[in-house]
Design a protein around this nucleic acid. Structure first.
Length: 628
RNA sequence: CGGGACGUGGCGCAGUUUGGUAGCGCACUUGCUUUGGGAGCAAGAUGUCGCAGGUUCAAAUCCUGUCGUCCCGACCA
């Protein structure tokens, strides 16, 4: 119990710290921005180019940075693709940024690739700033490493397995703990070299049970994964905090509305873990949060269930004809679902039967159940029958001996329970723990849900949905133990590395950004990740004066430090306007004969839709001011 | 894996109930006109109807199998 609450506060503190750290760092980022921001999206790139080609200023060279739509492979779609449901999938397809190659497998076209590069650069800059060093590990990994860690079996069918011509086993990496551990175990030998942090931006493979929602859940995707090695837990904690702060900054720079939440560490393993959620209805994750700062993924979080006692003077078996489901039972007894108790039977790895009891309006959390009963699995219908139990109306009263009973700890706040009578069509009311049955263990086993009370401050938990864009883990020595990765400590002893790992879903972030930044016309890219800052829409591209003015405009913008696209295609105005809105350049400059006659161009802000007629110089100045 | 749906020119779809030898819109090619919010007219090209069997004089259409894709579910007794 104490241990649990310590886990809670430790994890939630970590989440809150990440959120705060990012908030606190925002001014720093912002103050760095005046230097960095003009070049931020392509800072290092621009520097390199400037160094390599000092002649960049020669007009022709500058012109090379311009994206010319007349030459760009950018097949936009007028209609929504039939197999795309959510906004990001639909719009990225329509804007000609991605195409599907197979279920959950996508090609990135030139514009999509540019956005990807922007995101990768933000990630790279923030990772470099933490002192992590970029490497590149293979996607193709030998099976032996996975035998060593035990995950060849544990990872399950999601692991893409294959054999080479000599029948040797390989897999396509879904993550790289094994690889990185094998990399350092022979050559990272001394505590003096610690801590060490390495990262890569690379393609990952997971044979998802059901790929869906375009880039949000693919079978092949790009991930930034980092791994850190330490001699002590304290050292790990420092890096973990640094990474968390960096992750918050990445989200901010990508323009994401996000929240750091306490998470389960799942298949990766380890103890403390925190996820960064981009808030979105299309998100697959549910989370709860509280005013006090507590926030958690519902699969990992804890709350206090609010229960309503059903007045029953004593234990009484009542007839409930045809009723087995909780909602029907509650309705039949005119009481909230929270005054009933739901029973679920499963078995542990040893095959012993266990019954879990949870409030009727809550769900059993299988992850938590697995912690109480290792290898826990619910019985299927046949097994229930074989065990001599009824399918509905399960309950703790009068159970066969030897069946272990585990109850949600919050149920202790209720004296009299409504439970199944282990007989079709009958339930008990007024059943009292200890008097009418014996609970072997009280534990936290439910899925937290909105309206539960916060365990930290007793406030009411709110609910939201999110897209998990990144996650940080403290792995401890799970992999260094399994794979024998040790170093020499100061006292000369051999010790296992303490490890951390940190992932960012790059392609998933791209989808998350679109989920948060779109409207009826298309995508509205935040400037930092847009394929270019501004598009010069040339309405009469065959008119020499107009195209000359457009060229001048484009060059001026490039010289001001902006990334520029020019829609110089010989197409009708409406098509170009619609494409520009669909693709989502943050700003548009419309240049046509009509405006030029008055020496004016139109500047449109994609986000607000605001349009202004301005002189060429004023337009360039306005755009530069708005975007830099 | 369970349930549902869908595979017909590049894209979006109709045609399938009631078998009769493939159509619409967009895109594409050529020409003319047009040109500030997805142009008009004319001419043209593009499909072994996912694949494999079967039934039939005849199959996009009926039957069987198979592959692919999407949606829902995969704890909520």
């Amino acid at each position: 119990m104490t241990q649990t609450s310590r886990t809670i506060s430790a994890a939630s503190e970590a989440a809150a710290r990440a959120q705060e750290a990012a908030a606190a760092d925002t001014p720093a980022t912002a103050s760095a921005a005046p230097d960095a921001a003009p070049a931020a999206p392509d800072g290092p790139k621009a520097d390199k180019k400037a160094a390599a080609k000092p002649s960049r200023k020669a007009g022709k060279k500058a012109g090379k940075n311009i994206i010319r739509l007349s030459e760009l492979y950018m097949p936009t779609l007028k209609e929504d693709p039939a197999d795309a449901e959510i906004a990001s999938h639909r719009l990225l397809m329509r804007a000609g940024m991605i195409r599907k190659a197979a279920s959950g497998v996508y090609t990135f076209l030139p514009l999509g690739k540019k956005v990807l590069a922007k995101i990768e650069n933000i990630v790279r800059e923030e990772m470099d700033a933490t002192g992590s060093q970029e490497v590149m590990m293979p996607a193709l990994q030998p099976a032996e490493l996975w035998f060593e860690s035990g995950r060849w079996d544990d990872y399950g069918p999601e692991l893409m397995r294959l054999k080479d011509r000599h029948e040797r086993g390989f897999c396509l990496g879904p993550t790289h703990e094994e690889l990185i551990t094998s990399l350092v175990r022979n050559e990272l030998r001394s505590y003096k070299e610690l801590p060490l942090s390495l990262y890569q931006i690379q393609v990952k493979f997971r044979d998802e049970i059901r790929p869906r929602f375009g880039l949000l859940r693919g079978r092949e995707f790009i991930m930034k994964d980092a791994y850190s090695f330490h001699d002590t837990q304290e050292s790990l904690q420092r890096t973990y905090d640094k990474m968390s702060a960096a992750y918050g900054r990445m989200c901010d720079r990508m323009g994401l509305a996000w929240r750091a939440v306490q998470a389960d560490s799942g298949q990766i393993g380890g103890s403390t873990s925190c996820e960064f959620m981009a808030l979105a209805e299309a998100g697959e994750a549910e989370l709860v949060y509280c005013e006090c700062g507590y926030a958690a993924n519902t699969e990992a979080g804890q709350g206090i269930a609010v229960l309503r006692e059903y007045e029953a003077p004593r234990l009484e078996k009542i007839e409930t004809p045809g009723i087995s489901a909780i909602p029907d039972l509650a309705k039949y007894l005119h009481t909230p679902e929270s005054s009933t108790v739901k029973a679920m039977v499963g078995k542990g790895a040893d095959g012993a039967l266990v019954m879990f009891l949870v409030p009727g309006d809550h769900e059993l959390n299988l992850i938590k159940a697995g912690r109480v009963v290792p290898g826990f699995e619910l019985l299927d219908d046949e097994e229930i029958e074989a065990a001599g139990l009824p399918k509905g109306s399960l309950g703790p009263v009068g159970l066969p001996a030897g069946l272990r009973l585990v109850a949600e700890r919050d149920l202790r706040s209720m004296e009299r329970w409504i439970v199944g009578a282990n007989e079709d069509g009958y339930h008990y009311v007024g059943a009292r723990p200890e008097a009418d049955f014996t609970v072997d263990e009280w534990a936290d086993v439910t899925v937290v849900k909105p309206q539960d009370r916060c365990r930290e401050c007793e406030g009411v938990l709110e609910g939201a949905r999110g897209i998990e864009v990144s996650q940080v883990f403290q792995l401890g020595d799970k992999y260094s133990q399994a794979m024998g990765a040790t170093f020499s400590a100061e006292d000369g002893s051999e010790q296992h590395f303490v490890m951390g790992c940190y992932g960012v879903g790059v392609t998933r972030s791209m989808a998350a950004i679109v989920e948060q930044h779109n409207d009826g016309q298309g995508i509205v890219w935040p400037a930092a990740v847009a394929p270019a800052h501004v598009c010069v829409v040339v309405l009469d591209s065959t008119d020499d004066k107009v195209s000359a003015a457009a060229e001048r405009m484009a060059r001026e913008l490039v010289e001001a430090g902006l990334e520029v696209a020019v829609d110089d295609r010989d197409l009708r105005a409406g098509v170009k306007f619609n494409d520009a809105d669909l693709i989502g350049w943050p700003m548009q400059v419309v240049i046509g004969k009509r405006g030029l006659a008055q020496s004016k161009v139109e500047v449109k802000d994609r986000k607000t839709g605001e349009k202004q007629d301005l002189s060429l110089d004023a337009a360039a100045a306005l755009i530069a001011a708005a975007l830099l």
